Amino acid sequence: MRIAVVDDAMIIREGLTRLLAESGCEVVAAVASPERLAPVVEADAHLDAVVVDIRMPPTHTDEGLALAAALRSRHPRLGILVLSQYLESHYASRLLQDTPEHTGYLLKDRVSEVGVLVDALRRVTVGECVIDPTIVSRLLNRPRPTTALSRLTTREREVLSMMAEGRSNHAIAAELCLGARTVEAHVRQIMQKLDLPPSADDHRRVLAVLRYLQDGSAEGRT
């Protein structure tokens, strides 16, 4: 994979570059700002993915999200993996709201787990969306108000949490030691209970995950 990295912290940039290179990735650029990244992306037609810090100068708030949106509008098939030091589910919801394909959100703690990092990059390059399991776990375990999600059984919530991590039905079945048809039945029930009817245009799986994230957004801002 051909990867570009943008992070204003030199130590993080160099660490990511080394880890990715040792894992067989080609880091074509490691820059400190979105402005320096733009010409790299425009000049490299074979770039597979970009790793973006969520908070960068000048405001250190959501520059990474703005960069992700700009890249997505110009390069819809480019993989974008946003790294955050903060456990904030509303950032993940905002990132995936409009264009979840080819997009991921991981906590920076995952950087030390190079296998997780590289797997996430591979998945976003092929069009999947990836959400950090820690965010998924936090949303799953916190008390919830009465919403459509409250209709789900414990098993259905478990399946939905794995869907939120970007896992396929096959992977969910293997993890939970269930048959493929059983998982498919759970997914159908989830869609029905979340009022997501079949549609030729909408990705119901993504919509279900977004519903799940949005329910945790207010809690993530506290």
Rank of each mutant, 00 (worst) to 15 (best):
L160D: 07
V82T: 05
Y86T: 09
D109W: 00
L121Q: 04
P133C: 05
T147R: 09
R151Q: 14
S84R: 00
L160T: 01
H102W: 04
L139F: 00
A148H: 11
V111A: 00
E158Q: 12
V118M: 04
L140F: 06
S150M: 06
S112I: 03
R167Y: 15
T134K: 11
E128A: 10
E156M: 05
I131H: 07
P133S: 13
S93L: 07
G79C: 13
A148S: 12
V114L: 02
T125M: 12
R94T: 08
G79F: 10
V82E: 03
G104L: 05
A180P: 13
L107D: 01
Y86K: 01
V136G: 07
P145A: 08
D109K: 07
A174D: 07
S168L: 06
A173C: 08
S93K: 02
L96G: 05
S161G: 15
T103L: 11
R151Y: 15
T103Y: 02
S150L: 13
L121D: 04
L95G: 03
C177D: 15
S89D: 02
A180W: 13
V111G: 01
E101M: 14
M162T: 07
G127D: 14
C129L: 14
P143D: 09
T125W: 05
R144W: 15
V118T: 09
M162N: 07
V136C: 07
C177N: 12
G79D: 05
T125R: 14
H170R: 13
E101Q: 11
Q85G: 09
E158W: 03
